[in-house]
Design a protein around this nucleic acid. Structure first.
Lengths: 357, 357
DNA sequence: CTGTTAGCGCTTTCAC
DNA sequence: GTGAAAGCGCTAACAG
């Protein structure tokens, strides 16, 4: 186990000597560049393997000279979650520039496939890597594949295009997230029986659809005493979500649980507090009459709702982690380094009042 | 916002020219080394600030030449959580050696203050950084302070010595973890009333004591219908925990919740399943008679218990994250780089069946 | 106090 | 196909 501390690490030169070739040849083999006879390749590869040689990244980075450019293609318009990702990227600026990396934000309408595809196509050739909040649509897939074809490293962020040739997906498993939400709603409701409402942005969005799927799975199999009402489509808008929900509360007196799949949390919260007032139920007194409310993401709003006890749990994907993971993965891909999968995996966080980050 | 892509990043030389001094002088100022007249220091600092100059880490790392050595002082004896940390460190070996970093494991009896202190003292001078699973005790504090004095960077891991001069703590807030456990036990019990049991390793361990404190806080203030029984001290041993618990179940028929603060999970799980058998309660049928069980850490054992439905939730600190954060923090400290606090912060994870990592 | 200079271990021309 | 050599941007002697 103990290593001889006096031996300093091997260098390219050592490998070159051992394989009986020059520095340049080892370098070519190391990067699978052409222009080396097959048997020389073999000799060099053996020498590398025999010594478990690891090239010094700092030296490589310095010698390249050229800076690397990454682009982040994000939704235009105010979305607190996306703004957090941007804020965390901004926070890394010192780290980035000390490594001669630049990341540029590209705002676009990610909900319009052709607009998004066009934005992606426009990036071709100018960047070493692209992170994109992708919509799963054939023309987007084609644009992603074109980028990959052109040698750009591509990671999808938050929302995936599994059928594309993107190199990596940085985000959560949304079916599992929906299952987690379902388990929480069911368990927190406890012994009571009644109805459960779902508010989503749109069932056309892949991530929302997947979350609903997971949620229903758990509800059906594990909580037979709870019946799930048809999904309300709030389009992630506060007013619309509030109105739809208020109307639903009017029609069903026995709603005991609520799952908010997307944004529009403000409206959902408002509908809930209004209902509590009407029912003359404070969060302390009548716990048994309260509606269990589970939603997504930790923002200043959901944070407040959790502290107030209006919201019971938020399912969250750490935006800071997603931002940094996207950068690290793009960098590793660009350098040809391996990705630390375990490090870059985004977990499904359950956030309640006492473990608010 | 847009930057001129044609200008390549500044270098030390540019700053030197602008300040009218030599490379070496800029380097001295950059690292607060002595031997520069105060007014020259000022001129250089201004030039650096004016250009928001960031030295190229790769160049600095390469020029230093010397490799960096870190030591991880961990408990001897089989502890699954610690073994996971070691496994994740091993997984980083490629990453580490590509940066000419080495980490060495030092096993010691971290529960004996004098032994731990001696192990730490023995490291002095040989390492650039030390990560230690620390016991909060005066002699350990002294040993940590000595290391810091000698110029070694020190981070405490999992268990802190807040009063020492350690540079950083990589771990969770255990009071908040206990609060989270309490909220979960209380909320998952639902409308039922009854007694809640606590099994800890020892109340003398700082982290266990803090968790219990947080747990009781929440129980007292938010769940008046639940009464907490005196803490059982299982010494993190399976057999002892099982026996203590079995006896407790015999004495109290109305136990509805259980918090396992430390290890010994196997024994706790066994006591619970035995009780369920005696009570003729399957996890499906009599949910209302089941004991809500919350513990710590995701290991192969707790994973199984969660999947079986014996355990309801595990409070967890991501061991992979802790391992990598400790390395990154030590490296940043050694290089004099800023620490990305948000990145290195260890969160309190709530893990249930559906969001198992 | 300040400047000069020889590398660190790679990558990248440009010759052969 | 292969090799020699000139840097990349710093750091660390060593001179002055």
């Amino acid at each position: 186990m103990a290593e001889d501390a006096s031996t300093t690490a091997l260098t390219l030169k050592d490998i070159a000597r051992e394989a009986g070739v020059s520095l340049a040849t080892v370098d070519r083999v190391l990067h699978n560049r052409p222009g080396v006879r097959p048997d020389t390749v073999l000799r060099v590869k053996e020498a590398i393997a025999r010594n478990a040689f690891q090239p010094h990244v700092a030296a490589a980075e310095l010698a390249r000279g050229r800076a690397r450019r990454f682009a982040f293609v994000m939704p235009s318009g105010p979305n607190p979650f996306m703004q957090q990702i941007e804020a965390y990227l901004a926070e890394m600026s010192g780290w980035l520039s000390a490594r001669r990396l630049s990341v540029e934000m590209v705002a676009t309408d990610v909900f319009d496939p052709s607009v998004l595809a066009a934005s992606l196509e426009a990036l071709s050739g100018d960047y070493d890597g692209v992170a994109v909040v992708a919509l799963d649509h054939p023309s987007v897939r084609a644009a992603v594949n074109d980028l990959v074809e052109a040698g750009t490293k591509v990671v999808t962020l938050v929302s995936d295009v599994p059928s594309s040739r993107r190199h990596h997906y940085v985000g959560i498993d949304n079916i599992a997230a929906g299952r987690t939400a379902g388990a929480l709603v069911g368990r927190l409701i406890g012994q009571r029986s009644g109805k459960v409402a779902i508010v989503a942005g749109s069932q056309g969005l892949r991530d929302h659809a997947e979350r609903i799927f997971g949620f229903n799975q758990v509800m059906a199999s594990e909580f037979p005493d709870l019946s799930v009402l048809p999904v309300l489509e709030g389009r992630d808008e506060d007013d619309r979500s509030e109105q739809l929900l208020a109307r639903l509360f009017g029609r069903h007196a026995d709603i005991v649980g609520l799952y908010n799949v997307g944004a529009g949390t403000q409206g959902v919260g408002k509908a809930l507090t209004d209902k509590a007032l009407t029912d003359k139920v404070s969060s302390d007194s009548g716990r048994e009459k309260r509606v269990v409310f589970v939603g997504h993401d930790v923002t200043s709003l959901t944070r407040r709702l959790l502290l107030q006890g209006v919201m019971d749990a938020a399912i969250s994907q750490n935006p800071g982690h997603e931002a940094r993971a996207a950068v690290r993965v793009l960098l590793a891909l660009a350098r040809g380094e391996p990705i630390l999968r375990e490090q870059e995996k985004i977990r499904i966080d359950i956030v309640m009042r006492d473990n608010l980050p």
